[in-house]
């Protein structure tokens, strides 16, 4: 295929007689290299998946502390028992109310705070530094902190707000109160994610429409919101999924009570498996919660994918 060339250039190299071969790595070993790096993580993953699988197996047994000697397979009767029990459905209702209300309130507040912080102001730049403090405290410790404040006799809330001996953790108020604490802890999470998103938006479209004399509200609704949507959705996904399995601060504040008013699914599972030592029943609760989380996750992630594609289009 070589065409005519200046003679001293294309001099054909005579094949060197039996040169020492360079060290070669066979193809299968080259292909295995990334797997080799991932093997430890894979091992850990398997060791974590093992209890998961075990948990699923438990749902088919009658495994409890009282009959460890004579465990037998009971088929789907755990599911039957759980799905027909009022306790379970109350827990589902509580969990969903908790997750929906919490996520909605935190999203609205978080987006609002992000937008307020995005507007340049001296006070804002100071606040931004301390915004994340509640988020970084352990939710369990936050639960302790709020329990001190909720105390109806000595609590500072009733004193400051002049509410006398208002019972923050009574049967009609407890759910509201644990949601309040969640909002206190996790609104900053939504806010900093959305704030980072807003800051990464291109400024040109806003400048252009400001020149065109568009109102602030119009810019927000038509430009900012569609472009921010993916960031908001990431925050919503994280919050909603975490709320479905909420445990820490709720357990510290109320341990699920009074009665079952704040018994979320994970608290119910905790009571069944750890407090009453009925592992199979607890596992069944968790299995059903896991299914709920899984379905929700798939749905939300597909919504996120669509929003990201649309936002990419909006920025063009």
């Amino acid at each position: 295929m070589t065409t005519t060339t200046s003679e001293h250039r294309a001099r054909q190299e005579p094949s060197p007689p039996e040169q020492s071969r360079l060290p070669a790595v066979p193809a299968w070993r080259r292909r295995l290299w990334p797997y080799f790096l991932a093997v430890p993580a894979l091992a850990v993953t398997i060791f974590i998946l093992y209890p998961f699988a075990l948990s699923a197996w438990y749902t088919l047994l009658d495994y409890a502390a009282r009959n460890t000697g004579s465990v037998s397979v009971v088929g789907l009767s755990n599911f039957q028992q759980v799905l027909t029990s009022a306790t379970f459905w109350t827990a589902v209702r509580t969990t969903l109310v908790y997750a929906v209300v919490t996520t909605a309130v935190e999203t609205v507040l978080g987006v609002g705070i992000a937008l307020l912080l995005y507007r340049a102001s001296r006070i804002g730049s100071v606040f931004e530094k301390v915004l994340i403090l509640p988020l970084m405290i352990a939710p369990a410790i936050a639960g302790v902190l709020w329990r001190l404040m909720f105390n109806s006799q000595f609590g500072v809330l009733n004193h400051v707000l002049g509410l006398g001996s208002f019972d923050w953790l009574g049967s009609s108020t407890a759910l509201f109160s644990v949601i309040l604490v969640d909002v206190w802890i996790f609104t900053p999470f939504v806010a900093i994610l959305v704030l980072a998103g807003v800051r990464s938006l291109p400024r040109e479209p806003f400048e252009a429409s400001a020149v065109d004399g568009a109102s602030w509200f119009y810019m927000f609704r038509r430009l900012m919101l569609p472009m921010m949507w993916p960031y908001i959705l990431v925050a919503v996904i994280f919050r909603f999924m975490d709320c479905l399995k909420i445990f820490d601060h709720v357990y510290v504040l109320t341990a699920g009570g009074p009665g079952t008013t704040t018994t979320t699914l994970q608290i119910a599972a905790f009571q069944n498996s750890i407090v009453f030592s009925n592992y199979s029943l607890g596992a069944t609760y968790m299995f059903l919660l896991w299914a709920l989380v899984f379905i929700t996750a798939r749905y939300l992630v597909s919504v996120l994918g669509k929003a990201q594609r649309r936002a990419a289009g909006a920025e063009d």
């Binding site: 993580a41 993953t45 974590i48 998946l49 209890p51 998961f52 075990l54 948990s55 438990y58 999924m241 975490d242 479905l244 399995k245 445990f247 699914l265 994970q266 599972a269 905790f270 498996s273 750890i274 592992y279 607890g282 596992a283 609760y285 968790m286 299995f287 919660l289 896991w290 989380v293 996750a297």
Partner: peptide
């Protein structure tokens, strides 16, 4: 799979691990 650990309900693992 690794990410799903972040979102899976903790008790799902803890109950068997407890045993």
């Amino acid at each position: 799979t690794i990410l799903s650990f972040r979102f899976a309900p903790e008790l799902m693992v803890i109950v068997p691990l407890f045993v």
